[in-house]
Write a protein that binds this DNA or RNA. Structure first.
Length: 470
RNA sequence: GGGGUUGUAGGGUAGUCUGGUCCAUCCUAUGGCGUUCGGGACGCUGUGACCUGAGUUCAAAUCUCAGCAACCCCA
């Protein structure tokens, strides 16, 4: 028997073990908070990000800005600095020569991008401007680091930056970003919920911030994306202006929104089970694995397996024929751990009936499929797996969002998930609610409901989510 | 932010106090050969480590200092 994976009920252990056992990342790189993507993990990552790219490429352009930001630019926006100061890595020397202007390793790229926006934007015809990049960023995290979730090098930060003529246009872009992120997480079968962050927790330099969260198996929420309306705050700092139709100079209104490799963490954590990963077919590096069952002189079996492999790969499926020396059982476990959605067994019995045996990773349903129906069946099953995965986790997600009217109810609810409660909107009350429950205020929902703030007892229709957050 | 513990092969451990015996050991790690193959095979035979750097010493896994890393506790 190979090394066993901890049960998923011990989520923390399960998570760190599966990352290494399935070959996602290797955390043994000798710098705290940085890890190495294994080829398998990187392929998964790339598949996930290619969905994100395809959603953005509709009306965004991909660009690439430098990693280093001069201190002089970085320090321009006062609030922004306050928010990031403690987390910035600095490059201070070139060889032995101290640099006249220290260079920041970008923790995020506003201060790298907006000085260029100033050069690029002249007139209203240049707007809206929408660019994005997928890059690594560095943050000197002092809290406990956790692979893909809290890291010092975010290796896959997708950040989009847009500029618009009016505050309202920028707000429309915020809504559009919400739609894009919602579509993105649907494609990953990740249940998610958007809230407007409370003011004390918004992005430094933003008018307001919207976050998207999901729920991990241990009942803690994971923020898997943020969207910020920047107003003219950065435009004023970096003097980004355009000439409007009347020939007058106006500041642009900006937004930015980002997603990190936490989206990959969510796919791993939310779909996996006691046997390992379960990957949505669209992002699975391998969608189908073929295991030949070779008895003694199983030459015919091997040939048949090769034919199945060829048929499927010609149709564009990502398929692997596992002809290694292990016994079939060992192979089943191995590929299940890697989350391959479908397994095809080809053995003497199948050969005799001119069919193959098909096994689903999500349900372990085992069916015999005539060779002639192979391709349409696989197509259908892959779709079914996505639907089934999403339905299952969505149900569990919805069940763990609990309507509360008292803070005691909140305390109970956040042990397993998310609490929904009224709140007057005052910072003082919000912070008090966090203090009493030990949970965080995630943010405000757009939907409203009449009720009372649990602290000051004022009538309100604002509803917030509270949870223990990663 | 403060305090503590730890670092020995892919993983788990012994040895560290009291420097020399250390070619240590176990495994679900790993190479080769053979028999096997419809849910984690078996036999034979191999491989592989003392976190990094400096210091003390005839001699360092062991003692000292620093660094790096991991884990735990408290705020």
């Amino acid at each position: 028997m190979a090394k066993a994976l901890p049960k998923k009920a011990d989520f923390s252990e399960w998570y760190s073990e599966i990352l290494s056992m399935a070959g996602i990342v290797d955390v043994r790189y000798p710098i705290k908070g940085l890890s190495v993507w294994h080829p398998f993990g990187l392929t998964l990552r790339n598949r996930v990000y290619s969905i994100l790219r395809s959603l953005l490429d509709v009306d965004h352009q991909e660009a690439l800005f430098p990693l280093l930001i001069p201190e002089t630019e970085f320090m321009k926006e006062a609030e922004h600095i306050k928010g990031f100061e403690e987390e910035v890595y600095w490059v201070t020397k070139g060889g032995d020569t101290p640099l006249e202007v220290p260079l920041a390793l970008r923790p995020t790229s506003e201060t790298a991008i907006y000085p260029m926006f100033k050069l690029w934007i002249r007139s209203h015809t240049d707007l809206p401007l929408r660019v994005y990049q997928i890059v690594n960023t560095f943050r000197y995290e002092t809290k406990h680091t956790r692979p893909l979730v809290r890291v010092r090098e975010i290796t896959s930060f997708k950040e989009a930056h847009t500029a618009h003529a009016t505050w309202e246009d920028a707000e429309k872009q915020v809504h559009e970003a919400v739609r894009i992120y919602s579509d993105f997480y649907d494609r990953l079968a990740i249940p998610h919920i958007f809230t407007k962050r409370p003011d004390w927790d918004k992005f430094p330099g933003a008018d307001y911030s919207i976050a998207v969260d999901t729920l991990m198996p241990d009942g803690k929420t994971l923020q898997i994306g943020t969207i910020h309306h920047l107003g003219t705050n950065f435009a004023k700092t970096f003097d980004v202006q355009y000439e409007d139709v009347n020939g007058e100079q106006q500041y642009v209104h900006q937004t930015c929104y980002g997603i990190s490799e936490r989206c990959v963490a969510a796919v791993i954590a939310i779909h996996g089970d006691d046997r390992g990963l379960i990957l949505p077919p669209e992002v699975a590096p391998t969608q189908v694995v073929i295991v030949p069952i070779l008895f003694g002189k199983g030459k015919g079996v091997y040939e048949a397996a090769k034919r199945v492999h060829k048929t499927l790969s010609n149709k564009g499926f990502r398929v692997v024929l596992d002809d290694s020396d292990e016994r079939p059982g060992a192979k089943y476990y191995k590929w299940e751990r890697k989350g391959v959605p479908l397994r095809i067994e080809v053995g003497p019995r199948d050969l005799k009936s001119n069919s193959v045996t098909l096994v689903r990773r999500d349900t372990f349903e085992k069916t015999s499929i005539p060779m002639s129906e192979l391709v349409p069946t696989i197509n259908q099953k892959l779709k079914d797996i996505h639907t089934n995965l999403y339905e299952k986790v969505k149900k569990s997600f919805d069940e763990r969002i609990v309507e509360c009217t008292t803070l005691n109810e909140v305390k109970t609810a956040v042990k397993k998930g998310i609490a929904k409660i009224n709140w007057c909107g005052a910072e003082k009350c919000g912070l008090r609610m966090e203090e009493i429950t030990g949970a965080d205020v995630l943010g405000e929902l757009t939907q409203t409901k009449k009720g009372k703030c649990p602290i000051c007892e004022k009538q309100t229709d604002k509803v917030v989510l509270m949870a223990r957050a990663y």
